[in-house]
Amino acid sequence: MARNVLSPPLGKGSKAKWRKMLPERAIAVFLFLCSFLSILTTVGIVAVLLFEAISFFTEVSFLEFITGTRWTPLFSSKQFGVLALVAGTTLTAVLAMMVALPLGLLSAIYLSEYAPSRVRNTVKPILEILAGIPTVVYGYFALLFVTPLLRGISEDISVFNALSAAIVMGLMILPMVSSLSEDAMRAVPRTLREGAYALGSTKLEVSTLVVVPAALSGIVSAFILAVSRAIGETMIVTIAAGQNPNFTLNPFVPIETMTAYIVQVSMGDTPAGSIEFKTIFAVALLLFAITLVMNLLSQYVVSRFREEYE
């Protein structure tokens, strides 16, 4: 039933009717404008980033930006190779996923397939507390608890390092992986599990050969979202991973991520309008583009590969 609220009222336009319809329409217009604002937000983000980034790229070659591996805009000899920041972001995100992916998936399998409902109803909300803890708290934990622990194991690990930040970031995104994966697994019809049990399957075989493959689109999309979240994460890496844009995949040395660089410039006294300041828009644009592609990919995976049951 499609009702067009903006269409004229039925019948003759009597005054009484107008009095009744006018506020109705005003409200509809107001609500429309509010919902339009979220579209405007996206437009605003893109416009702001593009505007300043284009101004940046009139002074710095795009090719140097996207292929260079040295990032020193705040030094006197300026180089704008963003790959140094991209490497830091990639390194922390990959390491974080190496923590969050197995732990999250196995937790999801436990909650969905093994845990009695009482255990699940207790454990799941507790796990989700992890997702509600502010990231600055994780940063504190990474720098002051995990890093000293790691340095106790090996002398080669610096005070600021990618590993510590990534481990804690993995803990932070774990509930996202486990929650979304579990939702996907629980959406697998019970009859499929019964079909596998009826052939003599053990719980392990039902879980890994039937449930996980059947829920794969949801699980993959959860992973992509989690990666996107790890790429955009700011405070943990700012606090614990350092501010040294090293083009390296060594997790023991200080690095700098795209997000941490933006914080570094924001907290400094870089004058607005300078080339140094404009770098954050170029970096933010790249960050926005990467996470947008991942979010769209995640939605695509869900809609494209969802198995249609019954």
């Binding site: 937000t41 996206t42 983000i45 955009g232 924001s266 939605q299």
Partner: peptide
């Protein structure tokens, strides 16, 4: 859905 996935620091720049 996409706005929900935009890194929070980008909102700061906005």
């Amino acid at each position: 859905a996409n706005l929900a996935g935009v890194p929070s620091i980008v909102y700061g720049i906005l």
